[in-house]
């Protein structure tokens, strides 16, 4: 089955409108992208969509610190990832770059502190 799908690229603020030609789940071609990353995004979005997750983690001091997944995780696992992260309590002394959870839910992504503590 051949069809077309329109999507907005989220890789950069430019937000290109992409037109993807599909046969079943196979991507035949991508149009409308201003750079190569648009093609990669469209292919991933049509086969296995992923997102970088940013949230906060509670620390032992009672304050939260900002964290991110150091690589994108499967989109359908976002809420499972949130559950795992919200169950975690990090040491009070974490600093930017520290790994709070490694290999989150087997995704291969680490949860890394992004807050900057002076």
């Amino acid at each position: 089955m051949e069809n077309k799908r329109e999507m907005t690229c989220i890789i950069c603020p430019r937000g290109c409108t992409l037109t993807v030609e599909l046969e079943d789940k196979k991507v035949l071609g991508v149009k409308g992208n201003a750079c190569k990353r648009g093609t990669d995004y469209a292919v991933a979005e049509c086969t296995a969509p992923t997102r970088t997750l940013t949230t906060t983690v509670m620390t032992e001091s009672g304050e939260v610190v900002a964290v991110k997944s150091n690589k994108a995780v499967p989109k359908e696992l976002l809420f499972d990832c949130m559950k795992e992260i919200n169950a975690c309590v990090a040491p009070a002394t974490v600093k930017q770059g520290d790994v709070v959870i490694s290999n989150l839910l087997g995704t291969g992504a680490d949860i890394v502190v992004t807050s900057y503590v002076e």
Binding site: C12, P13, T52, Q96, T114, Y116
Partner: peptide, 15 residues
Amino acid sequence: LHKFGEELTGPEYAA
């Protein structure tokens, strides 16, 4: 993305 050629969070950019 424009300034450093990589995707950062707000606190990382500020840092």
